[in-house]
């Protein structure tokens, strides 16, 4: 379903809603395009004129700093105009429906919506109801997908490791509620890594998680053994002290990553985290700031990946308009 909504008959991206449904070739094309944009940030003028005169609306129904700011920087480095709307604090509290908000923004000649929403499927809903000339990018929907985060993670892995096929990747943490993990698992399997592992207590794993193509571990040391990449997930505050976990202290004792756990991993293993980090919960400071950490590179790569996705979706619509 999402495949036809986000990809046109010629294989061009019309929207970017989910990694699921995209081919290996399409994921590689996104990373290759990001590679071309990666150098722009090092130049004296950190901007290309590609999207001059286009308007990108960041439509955030859920708080976010990193994702919103990197989307904003990405659009600005493409020379687009950017409008940031925190809808939770404006329209909906005044009783305006989502569709009315969309119609109003379209009346302001918006060309693209970047949507973050607490409900799964929200970006798909917006894509189905947006005007034909408007592209939609999913910046995270509920527990469903966060495809630009997954792609910036893949881009980071590719830049450090080169090839995907020989890699063993371990994802540690709250898989159950993580849209990031879901998108990462799809991307890693599509790109053909050797093995994807998830490491979590049973209470933080979705039922039948093996069907996503992962091996399940409950023990951190066993789970990271011989891993090339260890991705730690953010533990949301509301999960820390509830029925799923005894306490954040106990979570750190069993699943918080430290150098001691990494002795069994590959000597050149890298550690990732989508941010923001809860230090002393998902990993300790020594690991977060240590030589294996590529966490800040992930942030920088987020700009290049978002420039790639924004320009590819905008290009899909440009071609459609002239066809």
């Amino acid at each position: 379903m999402s495949a036809s909504l986000q990809v046109d008959a010629a294989g061009r991206l019309r929207h970017f809603l989910d990694v699921e449904g995209l081919s290996r070739q399409q994921l590689i094309e996104i990373m290759d395009t990001a590679e071309s944009f990666a150098g722009v940030g090092d130049r004296s003028v950190k901007k290309v004129p590609l999207l001059r005169g286009k308007t990108v609306v960041n439509l955030f129904f859920e708080a976010s700093t990193r994702t919103r700011t990197t989307f904003e920087l990405a659009a600005k480095r493409l020379s687009a105009d950017v409008l940031n709307l925190n809808v939770s604090t404006s329209a909906t509290t005044k009783g305006e429906s989502l569709l009315d908000t969309l119609r109003n923004l379209e009346a302001m000649q918006a060309d693209m919506f970047v949507v973050r929403h607490g409900e799964s499927g929200a970006a798909h809903f917006v894509a189905r109801h947006a005007a034909p000339h408007v592209g939609v990018i999913n910046a995270g929907d509920g527990c469903h997908a966060h495809p630009t985060q997954a792609m910036l993670d893949m881009f980071t892995i590719r830049r450090v490791k080169g090839e995907f096929t020989p890699l063993t990747v371990a994802i540690v943490g709250d898989i159950l509620h993580s849209r990031v993990a879901r998108s990462q698992i799809h991307a890693l399997n599509t790109l053909g890594v050797r093995e994807v592992r998830v490491i979590a207590p049973q209470t933080l794993l979705p039922p039948h998680v093996e069907q996503l193509g992962v091996k399940v571990h409950h023990d951190l040391v066993a789970g990271v053994r011989d891993a090339d990449v260890i991705i730690t997930l953010r533990l949301q505050r509301e999960r820390m002290d509830g029925r799923l976990l005894p306490s954040k202290h106990e979570y750190f004792q069993r699943y918080g990553l430290t150098e001691a756990h990494l002795t069994g991993a590959r000597p050149d293993a890298i550690v990732m985290h989508p941010g923001p980090i809860n230090r002393g919960v998902e990993l300790d400071s020594g690991t977060a700031d240590g030589p294996r950490s590529v966490i800040l590179q992930q942030v920088t790569h987020g700009i290049a990946i978002r420039m790639a996705v924004i320009s590819m979706v905008m290009a899909g619509h440009a071609v459609e308009a002239t066809a």
């Binding site: 061009r12 290759d32 395009t33 590679e35 071309s36 944009f37 990666a38 150098g39 290309v48 004129p49 590609l50 999207l51 320009s311 590819m312 290009a315 899909g316 440009a318 071609v319 308009a321 002239t322």
Partner: peptide, 22 residues
Amino acid sequence: DIAFYRDDFTRVGMHPQVRPSQ
């Protein structure tokens, strides 16, 4: 690679296989 500076983006879209400028 001048792909991001072309004047025909809105007519022909992205050029395939853009290489990084070096």
